[in-house]
Write a protein that binds this DNA or RNA. Structure first.
Length: 488
RNA sequence: GGCGCAUUCGUCUAGUGGCCUAGGACGCCGCCCUCUCAAGGCGGAGAUCACGGGUUCGAAUCCCGUAUGCGCUACCA
């Protein structure tokens, strides 16, 4: 019987998680769900200085929004808690102490200033940077002197001076590092907090993590971690280093690249199911043609074997297309429910709140197939809600239409609409289509004129349905306004 | 600079020695549909598989080298 699959997503609350970060969470979650294993969430808040207020909440919210549920972690607990590293300090101290006693680690008294100087010197002489191990073999006298000087030491790991460390990465195959290229990294900082390296191996071991799925940027640290596992006598987990997600300039994703935090996509009106599908495809594929997949389909098909080795550039246009597809697949009711918060937030303040569901529901069929993001529904529907349309009268005179012709056409249309029996799209079409020739215009031009009069814009949903949704009185009022604009 | 990883259309990717005169998708272009805008349908342009050597009857696929890109090189994760 093999050990159960246990994976973890271990973000640090130093900012709002961006899409690259979240993609790592997605792959971990998919792997766990596909394998019937456990998905653990662990907060790595060991850097006091960089911790950002609200970031931890944003992490949980991001996962929740995408529907990535965790089996163990903050909020839900679990048998291996606590799942917040700042609450596990004694564990790290204990491990550091043991390493110290074994002679696998040592106290280092070098000041940050000295280390800076050392690095500058190394750079100047074009030597490989890294701690020069000054404190590695301190004599008892030297140690005593430094201790009494009052400086708070850090604990450093003693990297073996010779040999090599090799491991098999699930995605990249065999990778080898010469130990001589590794330096004595810090395990415990002088403020008593562990570094990532220490906390990471202690917790992954304690929490019985079977597979570490993390971004490629960690590949270079893996030999250090392996050496640590060995020093502790722990069996290391399997490793899989996932390809990174890059900005359009091919560099590591950052704020520079604009909206990259996952929750910003929610603000912009992207659907979580579309985000999940799209992000999964950044680095994983099912075959040579399947792209649209439900959460269930992805879970049942996911495997690390099909994860790509190459970093991917985030293609915003493709996301937008995919979001549009997902929006079109929504039922009209569901579409309405999802757009309502955006209308509440985005419509001009003079529009009365709350925006009625029933009316929004009537508009849904008119705009659903033309919306790519929910945020766009505001611009797509605002003329249904505002009292006063704002547009240049010249917009009415498209394609060389004369003022006189337009005025005549609008007057005629208005009179006929006033006396129309039924004000619905079929009746409107029955009336207006033949009327075009009557006013000396072709249908396209006539409808275009009416469209501008009634919506204030040249591109809008189909005219007759739009007019029906607007209602007779508002249509007449707006035609009146258009006439006034033309006659001024 | 050192170490590591990677390299197929602009982008995401399929491809695990012959099915590849390299397939799909987004985007782009054209046509059709059409009251505008979308959506949809059809078609097109777009990759000498980074480059150079091997191995093999045969290489995008295996090996070596070079180039380029990215990552790491903190008392950050």
């Amino acid at each position: 019987m093999t050990a159960p699959i246990r994976v973890r997503y271990a973000p640090s609350p130093t900012g709002y998680p961006h899409v690259g970060n979240i993609r790592t969470a997605i792959f971990n979650w998919l792997f766990a769900r596909h394998q019937g294993g456990s998905f653990i969430l662990r907060l790595e808040d060991t850097d006091l200085a960089r911790t950002v207020e609200g970031a931890a909440e944003a992490i949980l919210e991001s996962l929740l929004w995408l529907g990535l549920d965790w089996d163990e972690g903050p909020e839900v607990g679990g048998a291996f808690g606590p799942y917040i590293q700042s609450q596990r300090l004694p564990l790290y101290h204990e491990t550091a102490g043991r390493l110290l006693r074994q002679g696998a680690a040592y106290l280092c008294y070098c000041s940050p200033e000295r280390l800076d100087q050392m690095r500058a010197e190394q750079a100047r002489r074009k030597q490989p940077p890294g701690y020069d191990r000054r404190c590695r073999e301190l004599s008892p006298d030297e140690r005593k002197a430094l201790e009494s000087s009052g400086v708070k030491p850090v604990v450093r790991f003693k990297i073996p001076l010779e040999g090599q460390t090799t491991f098999t990465d699930i995605i990249r195959g065999e990778v080898t590092f010469q130990n001589s290229t590794l330096d004595d990294f810090v395990l415990l900082k002088s403020d008593g907090y562990p570094t990532y390296h220490l906390a990471n191996i202690v917790d992954d071991h304690e929490m019985q993590v079977s597979d570490v799925l993390r971004a490629e940027e960690w590949l270079s640290s893996t030999p250090r971690h392996l050496l640590l596992y060995a020093a502790m006598g722990y069996e290391p987990p399997r490793f899989a280093h996932l390809p990174m997600i890059l900005g359009p300039d091919r560099s590591k994703l950052s704020k520079r690249h604009g909206a990259t935090a996952l929750l910003e996509f929610r603000e912009q009106g992207y659907l979580p199911e579309a985000m999940l599908n799209f992000l999964t495809l950044l680095g994983w594929s099912l075959d040579d043609h399947t792209e649209l997949m439900s959460r269930e389909e992805i879970v049942s098909n996911f495997s690390l074997e099909r994860v790509s080795q190459t970093a991917a550039i985030f293609n915003h246009q493709k996301l937008e297309w995919m979001n549009g597809v997902y929006i079109r697949h929504l039922s009209p009711d569901e579409f309405t429910r999802r757009m309502l918060p955006f209308l509440e937030k985005g419509l001009p303040p003079e529009v009365t709140r709350p925006v009625p569901f029933e009316y929004a529901r009537r508009l849904a069929p008119l705009i659903q197939e033309r919306t790519k993001t929910l945020a766009e529904t505001v611009a797509l529907t605002d003329f249904f809600f505002v009292e006063q349309l704002q547009y240049e009268a010249s917009l009415l005179l498209d394609k060389g239409l004369s003022r006189e012709m337009a005025i005549q056409a609008l007057k005629t249309a208005r009179e006929r609409i006033e006396t129309l029996d039924q004000f619905d799209s079929a009746s409107l079409e029955g009336l207006l289509r033949p009327l075009a020739t009557g006013v000396g215009m072709n249908a396209s031009g006539f409808f275009g004129l009416l469209r501008v009069a009634v919506t204030g814009r040249k591109a809008a949903p189909p005219l007759f349905q739009t007019m029906e949704a607007l209602g007779r009185q508002r249509c007449l009022d707006r035609m009146e306004m258009a006439l006034a604009g033309l006659q001024r």
